[in-house]
Design a protein around this nucleic acid. Sequence first.
DNA 1: TAATATGTTCAGTATTGACTGAACATATTA
DNA 2: TAATATGTTCAGTCAATACTGAACATATTA
Lengths: 160, 160
Amino acid sequence: MRNRQRESEQQQFIEAVGLSFEQAGLPRMAGRILGWLLICDPPHQSPGELAEVLQASKGSISSMTRLLEQLGVIERLSLPGERRDYFRIRSESWAALFKRRMELVSNFRQLADRGLELLSEHTPEQRQRLDEMRNMYAFFEYEVPRLLERWEQERRSQSE
Amino acid sequence: MRNRQRESEQQQFIEAVGLSFEQAGLPRMAGRILGWLLICDPPHQSPGELAEVLQASKGSISSMTRLLEQLGVIERLSLPGERRDYFRIRSESWAALFKRRMELVSNFRQLADRGLELLSEHTPEQRQRLDEMRNMYAFFEYEVPRLLERWEQERRSQSE
DNA sequence: TAATATGTTCAGTATTGACTGAACATATTA
DNA sequence: TAATATGTTCAGTCAATACTGAACATATTA
């Protein structure tokens, strides 16, 4: 009966996902929820179950699931004949997260443009810093969505 | 004499960069420093000048410039015959920042692998969530460095 | 050597925001 | 209707950390 060991490994995995989420700038508890939803059986869990497994308050589970839902990472699931709600990971979750992150890139490109307006009367040398910033973020702003499309295509052909 | 207006616009730009930096998970003051270094004249500034313009303590300037230096975003500059140090933006700054961010992608791919080990005895259906996560992050872990290379090439050909 | 100019360290403060837990809402069953 | 089961809201707590400011370090000039 290696159940203890297995549970401990699961807990460690959950914490690791939590920490990574925190590094990405999201609340740790949101990461913990996601960590558990990645390995739990069945793959859908009720708020109550989440609170118990993660030893968190119901309030925290409620607000973090709301956040994850808004981010497009999880979805709510209601089963016929059951009054409880469930959450599970959306299949597009990671692409959704990635897209959200890419908004920052667009934001930085806009900042560069704004800076260039400020220096509109200045010499090319003065503007070079902002030109480089702008060019690079514009490049990624254009190319990353294309990369995502390529990924979607590959995924589609994989699942056939 | 529209000097007041100009200064106010500069301050607003600095704050905007600060806020964007904060959204990206870095200290706001680091963003402010970068914001000013993007538009200042001359493009290099001493810690003292930074503290004055940004109305920040010398301590904060000292630790934030250290951080930005470690991140590869700015570099220290000492001019002959001057005892003061200066900071300016590195030309590779944005690529350096971007690469740093991409470490998170690699991290998430590794997490997915770790999860898959935990579910090594489970059915393909059970493992699907983690498979998708792994596949997507592995895709970007591979492709984004290629994109960065393409960018470096374009940049080189631009500056010729 | 003292006086000045410059920069760093670090202990302490202040602020932000994640998280808790109790009160409240809603639905279901008896 | 009361009793139970479930979920949300929100005021308050706590911890992490960005930032300040004073003490300290270092270098330069007189």
